[in-house]
């Protein structure tokens, strides 16, 4: 399983990424250790989602230069599915609908892929049923969601909750939450946040990308980083988020210019 001897969990060194020939990330440095929660904040277009998606290996995000080590291994050399099987999870800002694909089947394929990677047997249908049931109650999600087709006809809030269920099923070592709070009402935000909190443990880490401080009332970060124009311009503790909320992103922009 997790090799906790290797530290840090994630090390990003001078990462530059472009999308459609436009450079978005211009040298990001970040180190994440097991047990930590990092919040990446920043104004629209600063590169927050680009960071999360390029770590997951989304094809349209091309890495221009830089290095990312995940448990000491070159993350960027791995296919997206291999990153996932090694415990990297991205909660999507816009989860995709897979018409006709049963959530049960999808989740089982995902769980089995990871187990296979770890040299474990595929789960039996009965085992998996129980496992799914446990996770559904753990993250307090409507069991109906797992009986439907993957995200098909789901509301925005249901899709986000479904992401948290998937995260619970896959028990990632590194969870990247890409604006998981956007478009959620207070109740949904609470359920999603509680879900994330329940999944936290000393051997995993969360990198939470958000525009607003709101979700940080529920998930307390150890570190807050402010991303402006493709660079982390300031890092601090949870207080930094409050300061940002008060003074706005213009304050940071002025400070760094």
């Amino acid at each position: 399983m997790v090799n906790q001897a290797i530290s840090p969990l994630l090390q990003i060194v001078d990462l530059c990424v472009s999308v459609e020939d436009q450079q978005i990330l211009k040298g990001v440095n970040l180190t994440v250790n097991a047990g930590e929660v990092h919040a990446i904040m920043g104004p629209n277009g600063s590169g927050k989602s680009t960071l999360a998606n390029s770590l997951a290996g989304r094809p349209e995000y091309s890495v221009v230069s830089g290095e990312v080590l995940y448990r000491g291994e070159d993350l960027l050399a791995l296919e997206p599915e291999d990153r996932a099987r090694r415990g990297l999870f991205l909660a999507f800002q816009y989860p995709m609908e897979l018409p006709g694909v049963r959530a049960w089947q999808f989740l089982k394929a995902a769980v089995d892929a990871k187990r296979q990677h770890n040299g474990e047997e595929e789960m039996s249908a009965r085992e998996f049923d129980q496992f799914l049931k446990d996770k559904v109650s753990q993250v307090d999600i409507d069991p109906e969601l797992s009986r439907r087709n993957v995200n098909e006809g789901f509301s925005g809030g249901e899709k986000k909750r479904n992401e948290i269920l998937q995260m619970a099923m896959l028990e990632p070592d590194l969870a990247l939450l890409d604006e998981t709070d956007s478009g959620l009402d207070i109740d949904a935000l609470r359920i999603v946040s509680e879900g994330v909190n329940k999944l936290r443990n000393p051997s995993n880490a969360v990198v939470l990308v958000t525009h607003y401080q709101r979700i940080l009332n529920y998930i307390t970060p150890d570190f807050v980083h402010v991303l402006v124009d493709g660079r982390i311009v300031r890092s601090g503790g949870a207080d930094l988020a409050h300061e940002l909320e008060e003074k706005g992103y213009d304050w940071i922009r002025e400070m760094v210019s």
Binding site: P80, F92, L98, P99, G100, V101, A109, A110
Partner: peptide
């Protein structure tokens, strides 16, 4: 079969080929 759907499956650990079959089977379910 969109690149976004495929990436979504890949991000859950499902290989590209399996992802295609899963999506196509879903399409034919009825």
């Amino acid at each position: 079969v969109s690149d976004d759907q495929l990436f979504y499956c890949q991000q859950r650990g499902i290989g590209v080929e399996d992802a295609h079959y899963m999506i196509i089977n879903g399409f034919c379910r009825g």
